[in-house]
Amino acid sequence: MKIQKHQDLIVWQKAMDTAMLVFEITKTFPVEERYSLTDQMRRASRSVAAQISEAWRRRRYRAAFVNKMNEAEGEAAEMQTHIEIARRCHYLSDSTAADLDSAYEEIISMLVNMSSHLEKWCP
Score class of each variant (00 low, 15 high):
Ile83Met: 04
Thr38Glu: 10
Ala49Glu: 10
Arg34Thr: 13
Arg43Asp: 11
Glu73Ala: 09
Lys120Ser: 14
Asn113Tyr: 14
Tyr104Val: 02
Asp99Ile: 09
Thr18Ile: 02
Pro123Trp: 02
Ser116Trp: 13
Leu9His: 03
Lys5His: 08
Glu78Tyr: 07
Ser47Asn: 06
Asp99Val: 08
Asn113Ala: 14
Ala19Tyr: 11
Ala44Pro: 06
Arg42Lys: 09
Ala63Pro: 10
Thr38Arg: 12
Phe65Ser: 05
Ala103Asp: 12
Glu78Ile: 03
Ile52Gln: 09
Ala63His: 15
Ile52Gly: 01
Met41Arg: 11
Thr18Asn: 03
Ser36Asp: 01
Phe23Arg: 07
Trp56Lys: 01
Ser53Lys: 02
Gln51Trp: 01
Phe65Asp: 07
Tyr35Asn: 07
Lys27Gln: 15
Pro30Asn: 15
Glu71Leu: 09
Glu119Trp: 09
Ile83Lys: 00
Thr96Lys: 15
Tyr61Cys: 00
His82Cys: 09
Leu100Gln: 07
Ser95His: 08
Asp101Ser: 08
Met79Arg: 08
Ser45His: 07
His82Leu: 13
Asp94Ala: 14
Val31Asn: 15
Trp121Glu: 11
Leu111Val: 12
Glu78Pro: 08
Ser95Tyr: 15
Pro123Asn: 10
Ala77Asn: 13
Ser47Met: 04
Phe65Thr: 04
Ser115Asp: 06
Val66Ser: 05
Ala76Leu: 07
Glu119His: 09
Glu54Val: 08
Gln4Pro: 03
Leu21Tyr: 15
Asn67Pro: 05
Ala64Lys: 07
Ala64Arg: 05
Leu92Glu: 14
Ser115Ile: 02
Pro30Phe: 11
Ser45Thr: 07
Arg88Pro: 02
Arg58His: 03
His90Gln: 14
Cys89Glu: 11
Gln7Trp: 11
Leu118Lys: 05
Glu32Gly: 09
Ala103Met: 05
Met69Leu: 15
Pro30Gln: 11
Gln51His: 10
Arg88Phe: 12
Thr96Leu: 10
Arg88Val: 13
Arg46Lys: 07
Trp56Ser: 01
Asp39Val: 02
Ala19Asp: 12
His6Met: 00
Ala86Arg: 05
Ala86Leu: 06
Gly74Trp: 09
Arg59Ser: 00
Ser109Ile: 07
Arg57Pro: 04
Tyr104Arg: 03
Gln51Cys: 12
Thr26Met: 10
Gln51Ala: 04
Ala49Arg: 04
Leu9Asp: 01
Ala86Phe: 13
Glu106Ile: 05
Pro123Ser: 04
Arg42Leu: 12
Phe29Glu: 09
Val66Gly: 01
Ala86Gln: 05
Ser47Gln: 14
Leu118Val: 14
Tyr61Gly: 00
Pro30Ile: 10
Met41Val: 14
Ile107Glu: 03
Leu92Ser: 07
Ile85Val: 12
Arg59Trp: 00
Pro123Tyr: 02
His6Pro: 05
Leu92Gln: 08
Glu106Arg: 01
Ile107Trp: 10
Ile52Phe: 02
Ala72Tyr: 00
Ala72Glu: 06
Tyr61Ala: 00
Val66Trp: 03
Phe23Met: 06
Tyr104Asp: 01
Ala103Cys: 05
Glu105Met: 10
Ala44Ser: 13
Ala98Met: 10
Lys2Ala: 06
Ile52His: 06
Ile108Trp: 02
Ile3Met: 04
Ile108Ser: 10
Gly74Asn: 03
Val48Tyr: 02
Met16Trp: 11
Glu119Arg: 04
Tyr91Asn: 04
Glu75Cys: 03
Ala50Gly: 01
Cys89Arg: 06
Ile108Tyr: 07
